[in-house]
């Protein structure tokens, strides 16, 4: 039944996928760090998504599906560029040796939050974004990043601790550094 499939496919694709362009772009922009590359990433992601839209199961999480394609597009590009691969076993060992996690500071601004995120390693940022911002499940994240679920969990654990440490270091509030300092700022 291929008759009228193309216009119909575009219509369904437009309804399912296009509402996620803003979120997808934000994700790409965060990862790429520049607008041209982010736009290029999003465009390639959506072209691939449209071509393989028959694989998308209606009723499932379209945004997670698109983010997964975006991660794969980016990962393929990075592989071609010969970027460094993270040692997962080392990460998992490191995840268990954090001696102290500071309390969550008060008075955090959005700017504090994003700057603190930039201070932590990129592979921790990725997992935090996919889990906490994109609301993807561990299984979806593992598929998107092509890593084991155990690594997702350890990166998330370690990443959240590092984020709190970075926030405290930035002196984001009295809980982290004392009220006098906050007043003096």
């Amino acid at each position: 039944m291929s008759v009228d499939l193309e216009p119909d496919r575009w219509r369904v694709f437009e309804a399912e996928a296009m509402p996620h362009v803003d979120r997808l772009f934000r994700h790409a922009m965060w990862l790429a760090g520049n607008r041209t590359e982010a736009e290029d990433l999003v465009q390639e992601t959506l072209v691939q998504a449209l071509q393989s839209f028959h694989r998308f199961a209606p009723g499932t999480n379209c945004r997670a599906w698109l983010v997964t394609i975006l991660q794969h597009v980016r990962s393929n590009r990075r592989r071609k560029q010969g970027r460094i691969v993270v040692d997962s076993s080392l990460e998992e060992r490191l995840a268990n040796v954090v001696p102290f996690v500071p309390p969550v500071p008060d008075g955090i601004t959005d700017e504090d939050m994003l700057l603190a995120m930039r201070e932590i390693p990129a592979h921790h940022q990725e997992v935090i974004l996919l889990c906490d911002v994109e609301e993807m499940t561990y299984k979806e994240i593992a598929g998107a990043l092509e890593i084991p679920i155990g690594t997702v969990m350890s990166r998330l654990h370690r990443g959240r601790e590092l984020l709190r440490t970075a926030l405290a270091r930035r002196g984001a509030g009295p809980a982290a550094m004392g009220t006098a300092d906050k007043v003096g700022r």
């Binding site: 772009f25 934000r26 607008r35 906490d132």
Partner: peptide
Amino acid sequence: LRDQLRSAFMHAEDLSPRPEFA
């Protein structure tokens, strides 16, 4: 902390796409 991260990410001006891009 998670909610604020989500909110910061969603509202950051420098992460938003150009209107003509979409």
